[in-house]
Amino acid sequence: MMITFTRILICFLLMVMFSNLQAQQLFQLSDDYIVKTYSERWELDSVYQQGTFRLMSYKPIYLAPVRWSSKPNDKPTSDNPDFSSTTSFPYNNIEAKFQVSFKTKLVQGIFWGKGDIWLGYTQKAHWQVFNTGLSRVFRELNYEPEIVFKYPVRWKFFGGQFRSVGLSFNHQSNGRDLPNSRSWNRIIFHMGYQNDDWIITLNPWIRLEDEEDENPNIGKYIGNAEINVAYNYHRHQFYSIITHPFNQIKGGSIQLNYVFPLKGHLRGHVQLFEGYGETLIDYNFRQTTLGFGISFADW
């Protein structure tokens, strides 16, 4: 059922794209994108509001043709034995990775004329493109549709401002069969802060119960919250994504990114990851990865 829901969301986003944007507008991701304020990105002020059903970037969009892993997860396991693989796969420790992410506003100006409801979709792919022995398979695909509510605020704090609060219903799955199927549902709370060239978002979540738990104790490994920290310096951007459990020291992950200009609108991207859960199939698997590629849209 969740896979069907994901497909419906993909079709909806495609219809929005072709009915409301020309292709040239969609892919015209200019250099000044990285210096947009948090308020501009989420249209928190009336001067930035552009109406509903316009497709725009959401989370970072990038392509890393080369990604190295210190220890490929060649035999995925789960704390639920029904979802532990009995077969070992000869994965390469070098693969390609890419992420696409878009959002569109569904409703504008609810709750005292200020709140907005957005539909977001993110897809992350890990591709064994150099592995001819496995016919260059996609090792893992993660699908992440969500409904997001954002409400603007202006709370001064340490020289900056908290600019929004909100929450989202988030579903994430890999669309695979037993024993490698993984999925979970969350209610994620949002709080966004900006201070000059710094943007910080704090996102704690509550995992919703699942009768057929494919990844028990996922919170123990990936964590119960995520914090994103982004800093813009001219045409350079540094951002990190950190997850961690509330009640223990072990667990969580950190992803460090550096985006830099190459030529014209083309920007390079270096990404370092360490910890658990780079993908859903790796939720309880720890590794270090390093990827090199190009970036199209950032925080």
Rank of each mutant, 00 (worst) to 15 (best):
R186I: 01
Y143C: 03
R267M: 11
F158M: 14
I147F: 15
W198S: 08
Y258T: 10
Q194C: 05
F162E: 01
R182E: 01
W184T: 03
H234M: 09
N228E: 14
D210R: 09
Y143Q: 12
K263T: 12
L178G: 10
N180K: 05
Q248L: 01
R267W: 03
D210M: 11
E209V: 05
R207Q: 10
E144H: 10
R207H: 04
D196V: 01
E212M: 07
Y221I: 03
G160N: 07
V148W: 01
L202A: 14
F246R: 08
R207E: 05
R163M: 02
P216T: 06
K156L: 06
G159L: 05
S173C: 05
N170K: 04
I227V: 15
D213T: 02
P152Q: 08
R163K: 15
K150W: 00
E226W: 00
A230I: 00
G252H: 02
P216I: 03
E214K: 13
N142E: 05
H234W: 09
E146A: 08
R207N: 10
L266C: 09
W184F: 14
E140L: 02
N224D: 15
H190F: 12
P216S: 11
N217P: 00
Q255Y: 03
L262H: 07
L178C: 05
I242N: 14
H234G: 10
H234K: 15
Y221S: 07
S164P: 04
V229E: 01
I187S: 10
N247V: 10
N195H: 15
K156S: 15
Q237T: 08
D177G: 07
R163L: 07
I200T: 06
N170Y: 07
N180I: 08
F260H: 08
F260L: 03
K263N: 13
I249Y: 08
N185W: 01
S168E: 13
N228V: 11
N174M: 06
N257S: 14
E209R: 11
R176A: 10
R176G: 02
G264M: 09
K156F: 07
Y239T: 03
N185P: 02
L266S: 09
Q248N: 13
K250D: 14
G160S: 06
V165Q: 07
S253N: 15
E212N: 13
R267S: 12
W184V: 02
K250P: 02
Y193C: 06
F158I: 09
Y239G: 03
Y221R: 01
N142P: 04
G166P: 04
P216M: 06
N232H: 12
E146D: 12
I249R: 11
P204L: 06
W184K: 03
I227A: 11
I206M: 10
Y143N: 13
V165I: 15
P145I: 09
Q237H: 08
H190P: 00
S181R: 04
G223Y: 00
D213F: 01
